[in-house]
Design a protein around this nucleic acid. Structure first.
Length: 304
DNA sequence: TAGATACCTTATAG
DNA sequence: ACTATAAGGTATC
């Protein structure tokens, strides 16, 4: 068993672990206490678990926050992995500086200050967001758990057996019927065909990185089940395009209510307009705070 | 090229 | 109880 701690208290903005992991950015983590992310259970002093691949080998990691330190235990040295996946190097005050000085945006930042935009591995991120179409957050999460348990490689850790997130090859080998049994619905063939594309080398979501933002989004839409919105999610939550603003039903409501002039009637132009309105470079970061705030704290009184 | 429609399944509202 | 509706949309026509 490898163990370690990471000081997060001294990092600008600190770390709100629960908000980071339960805000619908990543579907690759689960709570050790088994509580549903939508159950409203508060506090981030319990363990969160995930799997990862280190040099191709499946690993298990668990982490929790104690005071100003992030503690972790793992089958491997998980320090570097956590720093990256949780974006601990992001300078939150600099990011917040770019956000508009609107009341509800500032309240969102106040409420979840310390929440970081994650950097998930590309393939699991693509599959997660293909599954997200017309689906509730809790069920997207459940689907990824089902995929891991049905098709992932078993890994032993601390006396328990876990399952790594399936590889493209493992998902490509699954039948559409098997995927439908896991309640993926019409997303089942999308997941299978995308996994096949990656497995046979036709394309790789990681290859979108390095392109300009809009070219990268175009590249990702070649995968089956990946449209503009899902592509933006992958760019933001996996490939470090912090300007990407996924136009989901929540942000569309926000645009309607607060920024009606940004509605240009189509995805690409509306996306560009709201991206500029939310500060450009880190617009997606701000969108993530807004999304989480609208879903969970809209009725809470403002802080201060 | 822009617009309408079908699509799995489940939780929640009415 | 029972039906309608919506859920972090996309593919297809």
């Amino acid at each position: 068993m490898n163990r370690g701690t990471i000081d997060v208290g001294s990092r600008p903005g600190g770390l709100d672990l629960q908000a980071t992991l339960e805000s619908g950015q990543s579907y690759l983590w689960w709570r050790e206490d088994g509580a549903d992310f939508e159950a409203g259970t508060t506090g981030d002093d319990g363990w969160y678990l995930t799997t990862a691949r280190v040099d191709g080998t499946p690993a298990v990691v668990r982490t929790r926050k104690r005071e100003d330190r992030l503690e972790w235990e793992s089958t491997v040295d998980a320090g570097p992995l956590l720093r990256r996946r949780l974006s601990l190097g992001d300078h939150l005050p600099t990011i917040r500086e770019t956000a508009p000085n609107d009341g509800f945006v500032q309240r969102a930042y106040d409420t979840y200050w310390g929440m970081r935009v994650v950097s998930d591995p590309p393939f699991p991120s693509v599959v997660s967001f293909i599954c997200s179409a017309q689906m509730r957050v809790s069920r997207i999460h459940r689907m990824q758990q089902s995929l891991r348990e049905a098709f992932g490689t078993p890994v032993s850790f601390d006396g328990e057996t876990y399952h790594a997130y399936p590889t493209p090859e493992q998902l490509a080998a699954a039948s559409e019927a098997e995927l439908r049994e896991l309640k993926l619905g019409y997303r089942a063939p999308y997941v299978k065909r995308t996994a096949e594309m990656v497995a046979n080398g036709e394309a790789d979501p990681g290859d979108a990185a390095g392109r300009t933002y809009e070219e990268a989004r175009e590249y990702l839409t070649q995968f089956v089940g990946v449209g503009e919105k899902v592509a933006d999610c992958v760019l933001l939550f996996s490939l470090d395009y912090r300007q990407a603003v996924p136009l989901d039903t929540w942000i569309r409501t926000t645009i309607e209510e607060y920024y009606p002039d940004c509605d240009r009637g189509n995805y690409v132009d509306t996306s560009r307009a709201i991206r500029e309105r939310l500060g450009g470079e880190f617009a997606g970061y701000t969108q993530t705070y807004i999304f989480h705030y609208l879903r969970h704290a809209e009725d809470e009184p403002p802080e201060g």
